[in-house]
Structures are given as C-alpha cells and as structure tokens.
Amino acid sequence: MLRSPSRRGALALPLLLVPGARAAAARLPAEVPPFPAWVGRTALLNGDGGAARVLLAADGGGVMSVKLFLFCRTVPIMRWEQGADGLLLRYARPSVLDARRVIEGEAEILPGRRELRWVEARAHLAEFEGFAAPDAAGRCG
C-alpha cells in the first residue's frame, strides 16, 4: 500500500536536488568567452529562436547547425570577422530555409553574462552553454 509522504519529507525533497543543481551550474562558464576562444571549438547555444552549434574555423569559415522545432539544418559559415575587442562577430551564411539566400549576421557577447545577442532578420538572445568537440558542429543533438 502506498503511503503519502510525510510533511517533513515533502519539505526536505527540494533540498535533495540542490547539490545536483549546484554542480550543474558550476560546470557552466560564468561568462561567454571572447570570440578568439571559439576558434576550433563548437559553441553550444540555446536561444529564443532555437538551439545552435557554431564552429569558427581559423581560415575565416566555419559551420553552424540550427535546430528549429523538429528539423536540423547545417550550413557553412562563408566568412566571419571579429571586432577588435573580441566581443563582436560579423558573419555570412546561407539561409537554412533557402540556400540561395545569404544571411548577414552579427553576434555580440553581453559582458558579465552567459548570453549573446544575435541579429539577423531581428534580434535574438542566446544562452551560451559551453563548448563541445569540433565534430559536434555538424549535428543538433
């Protein structure tokens, strides 16, 4: 027979989750590293427009995978250049919906936060979730 949890047990349950939550938060960077630290590593982003993985290559190209709803599209980054402070990135890539259309975008690291502001057709916020291996850029999950 199932018993309902005691009041004390019900109140203590959230405390059991705190160490795990604290450990997960400790693995996330406190701030987004400047764009020079992104070269050769896949950045994991989760934003209001979907999830993305971005790999900037040293030759000025790269790869971006974008997950929107149920589909995943991987497109090349045709070119990118960073601002002098390493906090601004301008790039060009094909549209994930129409490869004939070129998207000119801009990303800005928001200092003191784990977020970036992406501007393509409109502005988006994306949370930086860390880095993965370079080969993770070509897939969404």
Rank of each mutant, 00 (worst) to 15 (best):
L56Y: 04
S65F: 01
R114K: 06
G61Q: 15
F69P: 00
G83M: 07
P94V: 08
L44A: 12
G47R: 06
W118S: 07
R41Y: 00
R122H: 06
L56P: 05
P33S: 05
I109F: 08
D48G: 15
A30V: 07
A136I: 04
S65D: 03
D59A: 06
R27P: 04
V75K: 07
G9V: 09
L125Y: 13
A37V: 04
P76G: 02
A58Y: 07
P14W: 08
A23K: 06
G105K: 06
A21T: 07
L125V: 10
L68Y: 10
R7V: 07
A132E: 15
R90D: 13
A30R: 10
R41L: 03
A126H: 04
C140R: 08
A43K: 13
L125H: 13
G83K: 09
V102I: 12
E120M: 03
L110Q: 08
A92R: 08
R122L: 04
A26M: 09
L97Q: 10
R114G: 11
G83I: 05
M78N: 12
C140A: 07
D48K: 14
L89I: 03
L87W: 08
C140E: 08
I109N: 11
V18T: 15
I103K: 01
E106S: 06
D85C: 07
A92S: 14
V119H: 10
A12L: 15
A123P: 12
D59H: 04
G138Y: 02
R100F: 10
P76L: 02
A24H: 13
V102N: 02
L15K: 10
F35M: 10
A84E: 14
S4Q: 11
P134M: 10
P19R: 05
G141W: 12
E106M: 10
